[in-house]
Amino acid sequence: SDIKVHVGDITVELHNVSEEFARLVEEALRLGLNEEQAKEWAHKALH
């Protein structure tokens, strides 16, 4: 599904992702990663 993740003043739109993936992206953003890094990190975490 499509999910918007908000962290501080950052909003990341995720398309066709699981809630778990979105949660991992949100966690990575909170750790200070940028959007691209957060998506990559979440992807690796799920595989």
Results as ranks from 00 to 15, higher is better:
E19N: 11
G8W: 04
T11H: 08
A22D: 03
L29A: 02
G8I: 05
H6Q: 15
K4H: 12
T11A: 07
V7N: 05
V7W: 15
E35Q: 09
L24F: 12
D9Y: 05
L24H: 09
E13A: 08
V5F: 03
E26D: 04
S18H: 06
L31N: 14
E40R: 05
V17D: 04
N16M: 08
L14W: 03
E35A: 15
D9N: 14
F21R: 00
V25F: 10
V7T: 05
L14R: 02
K44M: 13
F21V: 03
G32Q: 01
E27P: 00
E19W: 15
H15A: 07
G8T: 05
S1F: 13
E20G: 09
T11S: 09
V7M: 07
K44I: 05
A22Q: 06
L29G: 01
E19M: 15
A38H: 00
G32S: 02
A22V: 08
L14C: 03
A28H: 02
L14G: 04
V5S: 02
L29R: 03
V5W: 02
W41Y: 15
R30L: 14
A22H: 04
S18W: 01
T11L: 11
G8A: 06
V12F: 04
V7C: 05
L31P: 00
R30K: 14
H6T: 15
A28W: 02
E19C: 06
H15L: 11
A28F: 06
L29Q: 02
A38W: 01
G8L: 06
E26F: 11
H43A: 11
V12Q: 03
N16P: 03
V5D: 09
H15I: 11
A42N: 00
A38P: 00
N16E: 07
V17E: 05
E40T: 08
H6D: 12
E26Y: 12
L33K: 09
E27L: 14
V12K: 01
I3C: 03
K44E: 13
I10L: 11
W41I: 06
S18C: 02
K4T: 15
F21C: 01
W41A: 08
L14F: 05
V12N: 04
R23P: 01
A38C: 00
V7F: 15
D2C: 10
G8Q: 06
H6P: 09
H47Y: 10
E26S: 09
V12A: 06
E27G: 06
A45L: 13
S1M: 08
V25N: 00
Q37E: 15
W41C: 04
R23M: 13
D9A: 14
A28M: 06
D2V: 15
E27C: 07
S1T: 15
K4F: 09
L29D: 00
Q37S: 09
H43N: 12
A45G: 10
I3T: 05
Q37V: 06
E13S: 12
V7G: 04
T11W: 15
L33F: 13
L24K: 10
N34D: 14
V7Q: 05
S1R: 04
S1A: 10
E26C: 06
A42R: 00
E40I: 03
E27A: 13
A38Q: 00
A28L: 03
H43V: 12
W41P: 00
W41R: 06
E13G: 05
A22P: 01
E27K: 13
S18P: 06
W41G: 02
S1Y: 07
T11I: 15
V25E: 01
I3R: 02
A42K: 00
F21G: 00
E19R: 12
V17H: 06
H43P: 00
E36K: 13
E26R: 09
E35L: 14
E40N: 10
E40S: 09
E27N: 03
V12R: 00
A38D: 00
S18Y: 03
L31R: 13
L29I: 09
W41K: 04
L33V: 03
K4I: 15
E40D: 15
H15P: 07
V25Y: 05
W41L: 08
R23E: 09
L31Q: 13
